[in-house]
């Protein structure tokens, strides 16, 4: 299996406060990794640093995506290279319709890959196909990005965008938070159907519940900015039972 992502001794801080304190992680193609841990352990910081959020500063370490220096890339280049973040709090963008947003994103990625832009017709057909996967309504096209969406719709919309962009590395940051059981099932099924032997997912979650639906190959415990324990899916059950106290 080819190595997709390699994180070596990653240190990162926000506002001068160190959050990640030497994190190491290797992800191969075809793998699903769950990252669990107590609040404040650095789970969301990891997703922010991998995607190039300018609020965070990397102070040491390396991250390689298929051998290339990920940290040297602008956020949009990381995205076009296949890193996708399902945001914990998807952002509302009033006045920018889902259609315009998504078509711009798709065509920017295609241009990066040296492909022709999709025609309006090809694009709308693709939208329709992918919306079905997430059971999203047709009216979505004309609505402003995430504006007035319910919590469940926002999370479905994240996975819909993932389906449109077909990333090689999907980072799902607390995708289960705020979802009822039906929405959770739809979102998880969407994620599972997008899985291929060539791509990989990092599932960041506080609870074991999501992992009943998206079954991880590895479970890592992140505490105080480092991965302190790695196991298989049974580790998630153990954490659910005993909590994070012994890692805090």
């Amino acid at each position: 299996m080819a190595k997709l992502l390699e994180i070596i001794n990653l240190h990162a801080s926000i506002g001068g406060k160190e959050i990640l304190k030497g994190l190491n992680l290797v992800i191969n193609e075809g793998e699903t990794h769950a990252i669990m841990g107590p609040n404040g352990a650095g789970k969301s910081t990891l997703s922010a640093v991998l995607t190039g959020n300018p609020a965070y500063e990397v102070t040491a370490g390396e991250v390689r995506l298929r051998g290339e220096n990920l940290l040297a890339m602008e956020p949009e280049i990381r995205a076009r290279a296949g890193v996708f973040l399902s945001f914990q709090y998807p952002v509302e963008i009033p006045g920018v319709s889902m259609t315009n947003f998504m078509r711009t994103a798709i065509n920017e990625k295609r241009a990066y890959e040296g492909k022709e832009p999709l025609s309006a017709k090809e694009f709308l057909l693709l939208m329709r196909e992918k919306k079905k996967l997430l059971e999203l309504p047709d009216k979505l096209n004309n609505r402003s990005v995430n504006e007035g969406f319910s919590g469940g719709e926002k999370k479905k919309n994240e996975i819909f965008q993932m389906a449109m962009l077909e990333p090689c590395l999907a980072i799902l940051d607390e995708t289960d938070s705020g979802l009822d059981i039906d929405a959770l099932r739809i979102v998880a099924e969407g994620v599972n159907r997008l899985k291929t032997p060539q791509n990989a997912a990092i599932v960041i979650t506080h609870y074991q519940r999501l992992l009943d639906y998206i079954v991880p190959d590895f479970v890592h415990v992140l505490a105080d900015g480092r991965i302190v324990k790695t196991g298989d899916k049974s580790l998630a059950l153990e954490l659910e039972k005993h909590g994070y106290e012994r890692f805090a």
Binding site: P75, E76, I93, F101, A105, Y112
Partner: peptide, 23 residues
């Protein structure tokens, strides 16, 4: 936050800015 969200979807910063100004 909106700019970063759009960049995270692969939209270049200048284009993202223009989308927000147009909106």
């Amino acid at each position: 936050a909106a700019l970063f969200y759009m960049q995270q979807r692969g939209i270049g910063k200048q284009k993202a800015r223009q989308l927000l100004v147009n909106a």
